[in-house]
Design a protein around this nucleic acid. Structure first.
Length: 1066
RNA sequence: GGGCCGAUAGCUCAGUUAGGUUGAGCGCUCGGCUGAUAACCGGGAGGUCCGCGGUUCAAAUCCGUGUCGGCCCA
């Protein structure tokens, strides 16, 4: 592309995005960019693998966009960055999708279909989904190593999990045995607590009497799961609570019930008893050891009945709620299980993996547990043990995939005993840096501290097989179990001949393999891993460890990971647990934890409920760069992001300003043949505004660097946008228009071009990590064949002290606030900026402001269109004014205490003729009725004018605009009115900038015509007029001016004739 | 039920570490410019700082409490 080639009139994100995609492909931009940094310092980033189900949602889009922004930034900063994307492709969610697809209802269907075929179907499904995600991510402009993603289903990766598990086993952090787990009865597998989703459902709510066997009466318990009563083993109470024996009576009966004292009324009401009397009080501790009869003793003859069962025990999970006595079934609930282990009680679970009662459940055998509730309640009623039966709406856990209500049962599972290394994990966490920092200390550390052992086994098909082989009739002794750490070891030890390079190690393959050692044949345990274990090994799996060792030795642990806050329970935790268990270290050093993408109204997005914003729709409507800019302009440090279409549109319009500034610049540089390599900043004499914008550029780069260092890409982007929109577009470009307009190649013009070029070239590079498409387009147009093939090969621009001048920046900041006030004052005076004013008076209150005005008087005069700038230093003030004051509360407050507020108001309202403390004291006394003693520190005096002169405050003073008319002003003003109309016509005629014309001016008012002719020079220069003369064959238009003195309308007719010769050269 | 995070202009967010009269962008509105022109620029109006209570001369800011939203855990 040739330098300064014309760009489209309008910023069209879609057009440039598809153009740049093709361009990047054509020049191998990504590959070149990576090669460019090869051999530099390495940066090890690990991509948290998205799950391969469905297409990318807004949360994933935000996540990947953040990653892309930081990776591009790091690469431009010189690092050789690892950027291998990953995909989490195993697990129950994919199994259930495939089951749905095949029309399966439960595990039996899978067995009939064949495990091997089912696994193939899962693999095909996961790969299909992966393709969709890859192309989504690419369309978001994300640059990662798409040719070479890590996939959790590749044997090389699966081996990383085997290796880690074997390490943990060697460190004696693996255990096997019965535990209370959450079971999905449809999927027939244990599911992790974090896979349980809560939904409000209606369940039975029953109060049941358990008759005491060593004394009169019954204890009362409450439960929402009648089906757990067959497994009742003990009842828990709170030792420190007070329980009471209550005599309850109704028409025919009178009986004694034991409940916690605060629960009596509720139980009496529920039982429908007419009267009650409290007979005795007991400390909770007195109840321990009481015995009762199992409430379903007849229906369930084989109920838990070992030593110590059907007794009352203290337990810390008891809440004073309902009855204060808690039915405990260690075969179901995890807390009950744990307490029963402590108490050495029998643990009985009469429920199978499919949720139906086993023979130990007696009469209920074969029924699905929830279906048996009704019969159990009826049986209790029949025996007179039911106090009350009702229903309750509450949150109940459901399977995350198939939405079936989960049940708690005790089954044999494999664990990594993370609870044994809690301290080590906490120590490892302390060594990591989190952004935001509080997330680590408040949220993550708490979670780590509380986390129980990690159940890593699942009774399913589509995941990494647990690499454990055990002898027939294994007794549970871990010493006789064989754990395999990789494929090479597998090939060496199994009885069958396999090739470690090609063997697939999914369940269907490894289940066939046996290991015979010392005459004993071992077979593999049937379970597969929890899918969370897959991604927990990503930090070495992504480096192909253990099959390749070099990269692991050099890079591990990860320098950075970037994920959302829901990963505290997920990937942040699982990686820490696995790293700690296998290697004793955290696998990451820095964590950037962002929030969730919410709906515009603040609701959570939910695909299943069809509450979502689809990134594809956003891209289609606004384009990728505006979407990226929007996403990146939000803080990535913990907070959620409310998606906003208006926000994306806003970014679109900012990028449009970017586009227009480049178009404006190149529109002059091109015809002038400006050559940036021949004319550099060192070759020209810079004007004050050139020096200023160059300094602003340095300050901006410095701020952006600081923000990136702190993982505040939002502030970096907002700083950059503010610089470009406010400093470059709104100020610098406005200031240099007059310098680049003349046809002549002036030194001033060259200086402006050299400056502008520097600013533009560095700015596109600064934008590159945020909005790669528009940055690339503008870079290519700007540099043509002289630059890199892609802007992403540039070094990220660094501040250059040589151009930094903070004093000048301060001056201009003050001048701009004076200009702003001046504009305001002009509005009051009713004089538009096109008309010059005789004088502007700046009443400066600070020495800093005085210095700025003294030094930048010319600039101010030009910007304010004033013939003269009059400066009043802090000692002097503008006559014809009254004065007011602003209170300084930091002094007023401590001095006057509770009166300070009233005095402040009085001061703020005061209007006095002299700027003295005495005058203000009088005014304040007048208002509040009591005398006060003020000092100068308490107040800041300001002026107020009531004359026709316009005035307005700025940060450090007041600006007055004197709009008195003079003939000189009239002449210039009317001439500019003509210029405006003439140039309007040039625009209508679509004349080129350099096109010269002849102009005929017809004004009906002779006085005004006289004024215009006085300043013909202005018209000639600003309309590129060669001659002002009668024109017979031009384009004519008529206008209405206003007579500034009378307000009367004045007729103006202009005729323009473009010169033919000029046309030809254009 | 518990932990963490959040609530400030019509919208999106700063300001809370360190108490001292609440800011920006967008939108709205009025205007300017008319050589970036379906662009660009300026002025203005918009606030119970979620409610209640407390500490303090003074609270958006500190403390307590409630409500609503998000994440996590039960």
């Amino acid at each position: 592309m040739s330098r300064f080639a014309a760009i489209d009139d309008r910023y069209d994100p879609h057009a440039i995005e598809s153009e740049m995609m093709d361009y990047w492909d054509a020049v191998d931009a990504y590959e070149q960019t990576k090669a460019h940094r090869e051999g530099n310092e390495r940066f090890f980033f690990v991509d948290g693998p998205p799950y391969t189900s469905g297409s990318a949602h807004m949360g994933t889009t935000w996540n990947k966009t953040l990653k892309d922004c930081y990776l591009r930034y790091l690469r431009m900063s010189g690092y050789d960055v690892t950027d291998r994307p990953g995909y989490d492709m195993h697990g129950l969610p994919i199994e259930t999708r495939v089951e749905e697809r095949l029309g399966f209802e439960n595990k039996k269907d899978i067995k009939e279909f064949g495990e091997e075929r089912f696994i193939e179907e899962c693999k095909a499904y996961a790969n299909e989904q992966l393709e969709g995600l890859q192309s989504d991510f690419q369309s978001f402009g994300v640059w990662m190593d798409w040719e070479n993603p890590y996939k959790s289903v590749d044997p090389t990766y699966m081996e990383a999990a085997w290796w880690a598990f074997a390490q943990a086993f060697e460190r004696e952090l693996v255990d096997q045995g019965g535990r209370s787990i959450s079971q999905c009865p449809r999927c027939e597998t244990a599911i992790a607590k974090n896979e349980v989703e809560y939904e409000v459902v209606s369940d039975p709510s029953i109060y049941v009497k358990f008759p005491l066997t060593d004394r009169e009466g019954s204890i009362v318990i409450w439960t929402t799961t009648p089906w757990t009563l067959p497994a009742n083993t003990f009842v828990a109470i709170d030792e420190s609570a007070t329980y009471q024996a209550v005599r309850v009576e109704s028409q025919s009966t009178s009986e004694l019930l034991y409940v916690e004292e605060h629960c009596i009324e509720d139980v009496v009401e529920k039982g429908g008893y007419d009267e009650y009397t409290v007979e005795t009080s007991f400390d909770g501790s007195e109840l321990v050891g009481w015995t009762y009869e199992h409430p379903l003793a007849q229906a369930v003859p084989d109920h838990p009945s070992g030593a110590g069962t059907q007794q009352l025990y203290d337990a810390d999970y008891v809440e004073i709620d309902r009855t204060g006595l808690v039915h405990s079934a260690p075969g179901h609930g995890p807390e009950d299980f744990q307490r029963a282990q402590e108490l050495d009680l029998d643990i009985v679970c009469p429920v199978g993996p499919d949720g139906s009662f086993t023979e130990r459940a007696g009469r209920y055998e074969g029924q699905f547990v929830k279906d048996a509730d009704e019969e159990i309640i009826a049986d209790l009623d029949e025996k007179g043990l039911l106090v009350n039966a009702d229903t309750v709406s509450h949150d109940y856990g459901h399977c995350w995939r198939c939405d079936t209500g989960i049940i708690q049962i005790v089954t044999d599972q494999w664990f990594i005993t993370t609870s044994a290394i809690t301290d080590e994990m906490l120590e490892n966490v302390a060594g990591t840096d989190w952004y935001p920092e509080e997330a680590r200390d408040n949220r993550f550390a708490d979670f780590v501290d509380d986390s129980p052992d990690w159940n890593v086994s699942r009774q399913r098909y589509w995941d990494i097989p647990i690499p454990i082989w055990t002898p027939a009739d294994w007794d549970g002794d871990l010493d006789s179990a064989i754990v395999i750490g990789d494929r090479t070891e597998l090939a060496q030890r199994v009885d069958q001949a396999i090739d470690p390079e090609t063997v697939d190690i999914h369940k269907d393959t490894v289940d066939e393999l046996t290991i015979t050692e010392d005459g004993v044949t071992h077979t593999r345990v049937a379970d597969v891993f929890d899918v969370w274990l897959d991604s927990s090994v990503a930090s070495w799996g992504t480096l192909n460890y253990p099959s390749e060792e070099d990269e692991f030795d050099e890079l591990w642990p990860a320098d950075l990971i970037i994920e959302a806050h829901d990963q505290t329970r997920g990937w942040f935790w699982s990686q820490l647990a696995m790293g700690s268990a296998a290697v004793g270290e955290a696998p990451y050093e820095r964590v950037l934890m962002h929030g969730h993408a919410l709906m515009p109204d603040g609701r959570a997005m939910s695909k299943s409920k069809d509450i979502l914003v689809d990134p594809h729709d956003v891209i289609e409507e606004y384009g990728t760069d505006p979407m990226r800019a929007f996403l990146l302009s939000y803080t990535a440090r913990g907070d959620n992001m409310k998606f906003s279409f208006d926000g994306v549109a806003e970014m679109n319009s900012r990028l449009n300003i970017l586009w227009n500034v480049y178009r404006f610049s190149m529109g002059y540089m091109r015809p002038d043949g400006f050559d940036p390599s021949a004319v550099t900043l060192d070759d020209v004499e810079l004007a004050i505004e050139d020096e200023w914008i160059l300094s602003r550029l340095q300050s901006t780069k410095r701020a952006i660097d600081d923000h990136f260092e702190a993982f505040e890409q939002d502030k970096a982007l907002n700083t950059l946008l503010a610089f470009f929109v406010e400093d470059v577009s709104r100020y610098y470009v406005q200031l240099i228009r007059d310098r680049v307009w003349p046809v002549e190649q002036t030194d001033s013009k060259q200086a402006a071009y050299a400056t502008l070029y520097t600013v533009l070239e560095e700015t596109v590079a600064l934008f590159a990590p945020f909005t790669p498409f528009v940055a690339e387009t503008l870079y290519q147009h700007l540099t043509g064949d002289t630059g890199y093939d892609t802007v992403h090969m540039c070094d990220y621009p660094e501040p250059d002290e040589r151009w930094l001048d903070t004093e000048l920046e301060g001056d201009i900041a003050i001048c701009r606030s004076i200009e702003e006030a001046g504009a305001n004052a002009r509005e009051q005076a009713g004089r538009s900026l096109r008309w010059p004013v005789d004088r502007v008076v700046v009443d400066a209150e600070s020495d800093r402001a005085v210095r700025a005005v003294e030094r930048r008087r010319d600039l101010l005069a030009e910007r304010l269109n004033a013939y003269e700038i009059e400066l009043l230093d802090p000692d002097r003030s503008f006559e014809e004014l009254t004065f007011a004051a602003t209170a300084d509360m930091s002094i007023l407050g401590p001095t006057f205490g509770e009166d300070a507020g009233r005095i402040m108001n009085a001061l703020n309202n005061a209007n006095v003729a002299e700027p003295t403390v005495e005058a203000l004291e009088a005014a304040v006394e007048d208002e509040i009725g009591t005398p006060v003693e003020l000092t100068e520190e308490m107040i800041e005096i300001e002026t107020r004018t009531e004359t026709t002169i316009g005035s307005a405050d700025f940060d450090a003073g007041i600006v007055y605009v004197d709009s008195t008319l003079t003939d000189e002003i009239r002449a210039e003003g009317y001439a500019k009115e003509v210029v405006r109309r003439a140039n309007n016509m040039r625009g209508d005629l679509e004349l080129q900038n350099t096109q010269e014309v002849r102009l005929d001016i017809q004004l009906e008012d002779e006085t005004i015509a006289e004024y215009v002719s006085e300043r013909e020079d202005i018209v000639r220069e600003q309309v590129r007029v060669t001659a002002i003369e009668p024109v017979s064959d031009g384009h004519t238009d008529s206008w209405e001016l206003t007579n500034v003195d009378t307000g009367e309308p004045v007729e103006l007719e202009l005729t323009i004739d473009p010169l033919v010769a000029q046309k030809a050269t254009e």
